[in-house]
């Protein structure tokens, strides 16, 4: 991924969150995200850092249109979500792809191929041959061509996480959200993820998202690959420049999440 690009505030805002408060998914009634403002712009590669339970998943769920915030407003591609009719909202939502953490939440009773074909068939995208070619191409990109007919539930967590990525890509979203993608994968698969995302951002494939948002509890693999960083801790939201190593080094949470407790970068 390109780490050297500056944060370009003049670029189009793809996703905007204003004064957003989100309820915890684990403790009902408790707010995790408190009155945050956040914009995701074109060409930005965001890293959201924070410890487990800090609210990263809830924030990604709101930004990707999966859940509604308790208060505040969300805009997708310049349109306020609350003003959109269901059909228009769905149209905007399909421009967002989300990869869940902890095994990708794949459809376990469907084959690998059907996991990818389901969204295409459900949304009645025309041209079956093109869909088939696209699915085959994605599976090649994932290194999963030989697993076409295997049941997703029989895959290991490493491959399920990769299938989760493939499924999020199948509708060619403009913004790709990755929720702690390296959380459950081993180092070999982790290396593949980083190399694949580097290639994707460099435009080595037919499709490239306009922006990528990654949540991570280990910042080390991501700092050189991002151009925007936000740290989430105890309901606080702090935006930082990932290229400013001095500032990062002074932040104890960044240090703790990057190299272990209190080690310099």
């Amino acid at each position: 991924m390109e780490a050297d690009q500056p944060i370009q505030s003049t670029l189009e805002i793809l996703i905007g969150l204003k004064d957003v408060t989100v309820e915890s998914s684990q403790e009902l009634g408790k707010n995790r995200v408190l009155g945050w403002n956040w914009s995701v712009r074109e060409n930005q590669i965001w890293i959201l850092g924070g410890t487990a339970g800090s609210g990263k998943t809830e924030l990604l769920s709101v930004a990707s249109g999966l859940i509604k915030p308790r208060s505040g407003s969300v805009s997708l591609f310049g349109k306020e979500v609350q003003d959109l009719e269901p059909e228009a909202w769905l149209e905007e939502k399909l421009k967002l792809g989300l990869v869940f953490e902890d095994g990708g939440r794949v459809f376990q009773d469907l084959s690998v191929y059907d996991n990818l074909m389901l969204p295409l068939a459900y949304h009645e995208l025309p041209d079956t041959d093109k869909n088939h070619a696209w699915v085959t191409q994605i599976l090649e990109m994932m290194g999963m061509s030989s697993m076409l007919n295997r049941l997703a539930g029989r895959l290991s967590r490493n491959w399920r996480q990769r299938l989760g990525l493939a499924r999020a890509m199948v509708l060619r979203p403009e913004v790709l959200f990755l929720d702690n993608p390296l959380g459950v994968v081993d180092s070999h698969h982790g290396q593949w993820w980083l190399e694949f995302l580097d290639s994707l951002v460099h435009g080595d494939y037919e499709w490239k998202p306009k922006s990528i948002v990654v949540s991570a509890s280990d910042l080390k693999p991501w700092l050189d690959r991002s151009n925007c960083l936000a740290m989430i801790h105890d309901g606080d939201w702090v935006e930082m420049d990932p290229s400013d190593r001095d500032t990062l080094n002074r932040n104890p949470l960044v240090r703790a999440l990057s190299t272990g407790i209190n080690q310099p970068l």
Partner: peptide, 18 residues
């Protein structure tokens, strides 16, 4: 329990319909 319903919703698939 396995989060597949949320995965459907994330792909714009109406879980009641499906």
């Amino acid at each position: 329990a396995m989060g597949e319903v949320e995965a459907l919703e994330a792909l714009g698939i109406d879980s009641i319909h499906y």
